[in-house]
């Protein structure tokens, strides 16, 4: 065999041996996952809370209850039903009510009526455009999804609590105790842990996720659904409106265009996506 043709054949042979791994690689890179059929999509999810409507239903905590039950958030603080915690600072909060002058200290001031100052106002994670919690997370356990939701991958959380320090809204809670002890044994008549949603474990930080797991399969957030149920019999639109901030046709965008909305601590530049009508 000539040297030249030997080299040609050898080259062809080498190419052939490379083909098999290449084929496997291509097969492996083929998409095996895709967005769920019927998922709710948005460029930027946002929430509007009309506190005037909340006030009409004074004392209503349906949104919080729906969230806590759906997401297995232990009912840990006074006024709740399940066993009380040894230390109220161990409370886990996804959405909760906070006195008005804590929520909007700059709008409170010395001349505001004391009753108004103490008025409980619904708060939750603001899913900021520029979330400080995401910036500080050393493991990227918390991250911003393409649709604006500040999400947590609890598999990665090492419980360092940097995010809790970074969040200016106190929206993050650390599991100082094993949350499961608050789900069993059950007091008769109390709601059970929701088996469809994971609990957390001791030593991770958690927060509101705008119900990302529901949006991805075509359902609205639990609090928004609960709020709609409260207001449906009254014939008015609910206090909570949820939708795509960047879609001009969405109800949220329409409210943002027409109403006077405020955000918490706008001076910090995190650009929250929970808006309030006061």
């Amino acid at each position: 065999m000539e040297r030249r043709s030997f080299l040609k054949w050898a080259g062809l042979g080498a190419l052939g041996t490379a083909a098999a791994p290449l084929a496997t690689a291509i097969q492996k890179s083929a998409p095996h996952v895709q967005p769920a059929a019927g998922e709710l999509k948005a460029k930027r999810w946002a929430m509007v809370i009309d506190t005037r409507k909340c006030l009409k239903e004074r004392g209503c905590t349906k949104c919080i209850e729906a969230c806590d039950q759906g997401h297995n958030v232990p009912y840990l603080f006074p006024g709740r039903r399940l066993p009380l915690l040894s230390n109220p600072k161990h409370e886990v909060k996804w959405d909760w009510k906070e006195p008005f002058d804590h929520v909007f200290p700059e709008l409170s001031g010395p001349f505001l009526e004391p009753a108004k100052k103490e008025e409980p106002t619904l708060v939750m994670c603001n899913h900021c455009d520029d979330p400080p919690c995401v910036r500080v997370c050393p493991t990227q356990a918390t991250f911003k999804r393409a649709d604006g939701i500040v999400m947590q991958d609890l598999h990665r959380c090492i419980g360092c609590r940097y995010c809790m320090v970074a969040c200016p809204f106190g929206s993050r809670s650390f599991n100082w105790e094993d949350p499961r002890q608050y789900f069993a044994p059950w007091t008769p008549g109390e709601p059970e842990a929701n088996p469809d949603f994971p609990t957390r474990t001791k030593g991770v930080v958690e927060k509101c996720t705008f119900c990302a797991e529901r949006l991805d399969v075509g359902e609205m957030p639990l609090c928004v659904e609960a709020c709609a149920k409260v207001f449906a019999p009254l014939g008015t639109s609910p206090a909570m409106t949820f939708g795509d901030r960047d879609d001009p046709k969405s109800p949220v965008a329409q409210i943002l265009r027409t109403a006077n909305v405020v955000r918490r601590k706008p001076e910090l530049g995190t650009s929250p996506n929970v808006f309030y009508i006061l």
Binding site: H32, V33, Q34, P35, A36, A37, M151, D216
Partner: peptide, 20 residues
């Protein structure tokens, strides 16, 4: 894919789709 990627459907080798 579910937690970090927003993809909640799995395409099995036989063409079936499953919700992750």
């Amino acid at each position: 894919s579910a937690v970090r990627g927003l993809d909640r459907d799995y395409l099995a080798a036989d063409g079936e789709t499953y919700r992750i």
